[in-house]
Each structure stands twice: as C-alpha cells, then as structure tokens.
Design a protein around this nucleic acid. Structure first.
Lengths: 232, 232
DNA sequence: TTTAATTGTGTAAATTTAACACAATTATTT
DNA sequence: AAATAATTGTGTTAAATTTACACAATTAAA
C-alpha cells in the first residue's frame, strides 16, 4: 500500500460543546483543566483522534468519557483550522455540540474529567478559540431547534409543556406566549400524554408528556417552525 | 514550544462538491482523474491541507485551482473519517459544497484539472466515499436553499424570475406554481428590476432582475421559506 | 374559605398560503 | 396584416395558520 509521499500529517482534535438544561437556564459542561497545556484554565472537553479510530467512534468516546452516556445526540458544527489556533502545535479541531439530559449523566465521569456545569450566560473565558466555538454552537442550536424537535434531548423522559416552554425561552433568551406555544407543540403530534401529572408543583399540576419516539424519528427532518423568524 | 508527544498525525484532505446550473439541470463539476490513485476514474475535486496553511485558505485554493474564481460561496458539510475510507493511507476528508455561476468560471482552469460538468442526475460512479458526499451535499443544498437565498449564487448577475424558478425546480426536482413562486420571491425584496428584458426569448420577454447585494447580506440569515416542507 | 400562582383551553382578527384565471407580449405562421 | 402559440405578469378567493388576546380550573398556602 503506497502512502501519499509529499503531504503533511496534522494533529486532529475533537472538541465538544455539551449543553444541558436545569429547568431554568441553559448550561455548559466545561473542563477546569488539571493538565497541560493551559492548566488551571477553562476549556471545552476534547481529545485527539486516534490512529485506528473512526471519527464517529472518537466522538462517542469523548462524550462517553465525559458523561458516562452512550447514544448522545450530537451534531458536527465546523472544523476550526487556523494554523496557530493551538500554540503548542498545529491542531485541527473538529467541533460539535451535544445535548444531554442534565440529570442522567454520570457524575463520577464528570468528576474524573474535572468537569462542571456552568451557566451559559456566565461562562468563564475559555482557552484558544473555544469561546468562538461556544458562540457558534449556540447559534447552531438556535437554528436547529427553531425547526427540528431537538429540544427534547435536553429534558428528562417525562416533562410538562411549561417545562418545555422554559427550555425554549432559555435557548432563545426571549419570552414566548404560553397559549400559542402549547398549541404549536401539540400540533406536531410528537407528544404522548402519560396520564400522570407533575408532582412537585405548588399550584396546578401540569400534565406529564413523553416523546413519541417513532414519530420523532420519522418526522425529525420535517420543518416544524417552533420559533418564528423574528424570535431568532 | 512543546509538541503533543503521544498523538497521531493524520492526512487531511478537502473535497468539494461544485454545483452549477445550465438553465435546465443541476450540474456537478467532476474530475476525470489523470493521476494516481484511481487514475481514470471519476472523483470530486480535492486536495490536501498543507503545512502552514489555514483551513479556509486551503478551501479557497482548491476552489480557485479548479475554477479560477475567488470569493466562491461554499459551505462546510461534514468531515468523513472512517479509518479505511482511502485505501492508500488513512485520510480525513473535510467535505464542503460550493455554488458557482456555470458561465463565469475559467474553462482553462477546469481543463487543467481535467474537470467536466456532469448532470447531477446522470453522474458517473465516484471513487471512495465521494458518492455519499454528493448525496449529502444535495441534501444540504436542498435544506439550505429552502430557507436562505443561496440559489442566486448559481445564476448569472442578471436573471429572470422564470429562470430562478427553473433553478428551484431543478434543485427540488419538482414543479412549482409560477404565480405563487413569483409572489414569494418578490416579497423578499431581494430583487432589483434592472429595467431590461431578457433578449433571447421566442415569446414574451421576461424582466431581468439583479440581486440587491446589501439586503442579501443583511437578510441572509433570516428565514424565507422559499419551499414548503412537503416539497423537500 | 379565601388567595395567589399556574395550567389548560378557547376565540376572533390578521396574515399567509394554495389554487386557480385572465390579460399582455412576442416570434412565427397563415 | 391577422391569427396563432408560447410564455410572462398580475389578480382573486378560499383555506389554513398565526397572533393577540380572555377565561375557567386546579392546587398549596394563607
């Protein structure tokens, strides 16, 4: 097997923006680096693509190491490739974002990576071009969530419509009309009434829904217009 | 400057799907390979990311070498990273699509690369995973063009609404209602009436429009819903 | 039992979309 | 010169959707 003789091999990293939702605010799972380079500073979770490892496998490995979860929803955003973006050595970064249920991930995995949930709005400064990556990820999340039902990935198995609304309000940092939102969501037919009601409520208890996984799969690529253009 | 000692450096290629429109059909600019590997077979235009070259610069270099054009509209799609996707040596491919005005590019540049315009519908089989790349690129083009005014990138400076409609019909391989299409396009206020009319017509001459570049820039990220969901 | 907060559902006006018809223009044919 | 055929520009109406609201029901706490 002949190799390509005249070309340069380059380090390839994967960096992931992990979003979570605590019921009130959008959160990021960030690393307080206890290793070099840039020890002590904050960064995204990342890792290098290994010798005999498919790119997809590497992505799942990195997400698993951080969260202890498999089959996480993620989406590739962009490859960052400025020559000097990493001062140690030239490194490409294939950047993606992931959405997880903040209560489902393994705390020990996060602890092992020295990872902490941080409010998106009050996030610390990050190393290298990681700030730009987060900005872009938020943009992409907003774009995608306006049209496709990816928001559910951030919620627990069962959730109420008011919870879902709070999530969308957090994503777009804008208030939404309760009545119109509810109608829009229900009209997608993606929700199944579980018959149960939210217990931890101090006033009227809201209906608990779960996602209709089959319809979610089959209608995922349809447009839903959850959020109007003016809102984004 | 310390290097990262234990990690693997990998070959990184860029492969681009170049779309064009001849007034009737969507076209692809493909390479009839007169070099190894896979000499004689068809492939996408590509190239390796070089040592001291920004990723963005490499993309523009490859597009320039193929078309003689600068400032081409392009969009990154995905990085293909299966270990064995290139049998010669492990190679990542950062894949993107580009839209050009088929009449504006430099024929000599294309000839130098042994590149030919091919009907998207009757395209030859391509090497490696390039077929998948084209499939994905078409999907992304359809997705993006349903919401954002990228179609104009495929047309000459001046164009008529019937021409534009033919383009959209080619992209979605579906007929569109002439009257509703015209209304939808005009309501974006992205078109400027040049006052001139299409000359090479055997019947009623259509109005020639040009793009309002300022509005195009500023409203690019707004949603336009050029194509309804059921159409895609 | 009242109160306050929240949830579920309804309604009417405005806007947008979908489906369709007709008049105007131009090269070609009669 | 008039008729023809193909194509273009614009208009209309009904249906569907969105927007901006109001009201009744539920629940824990006062």
């Amino acid at each position: 097997m002949n190799k390509y003789p005249h070309s340069t091999r380059i380090l390839v990293a994967l960096d992931c923006i992990v979003f979570g939702f605590d019921g009130e605010e959008l959160k990021l799972l960030l690393i307080k680096r206890n290793f070099e380079p840039e020890q002590g500073k904050w960064s995204l979770m990342g890792g290098f693509l290994e010798e005999e490892e498919d790119l997809e496998v590497a992505t799942n490995r990195i997400l698993y190491d951080l969260t202890g979860l498999k089959d996480i929803y993620f989406e590739e955003i962009k490859t960052f490739g400025k020559v000097n973006r990493d001062p140690v050595e030239r490194t490409l970064s294939i950047c993606f974002f992931a959405l997880i249920n903040i209560h489902a991930h393994n705390q020990d995995s996060a602890k092992a990576q020295n990872a902490y949930w941080v409010d998106l709005k009050n996030r610390p400064n990050l190393i290298f071009d990681h700030n730009q990556m987060v900005d872009l990820a938020l943009e992409e999340l907003r774009y995608k969530a306006a049209l496709h039902p990816i928001g559910f990935e951030l919620l627990p198995e069962q959730f109420t419509i008011p919870q879902l609304q709070k999530l969308y309000e957090a994503i777009y940092d804008s208030p939404l009309d309760r009545r119109n939102f509810s109608r829009k969501i229900l009209s997608t037919n993606l929700l199944i009434d579980t018959g149960e009601k939210n217990q931890n409520s101090t006033t009227k208890k809201a209906i608990l829904y779960k996602l209709d996984k089959e319809k979610y799969q089959s209608k995922f690529n349809a447009f839903h217009y959850f959020i109007s253009d003016s809102m984004r």
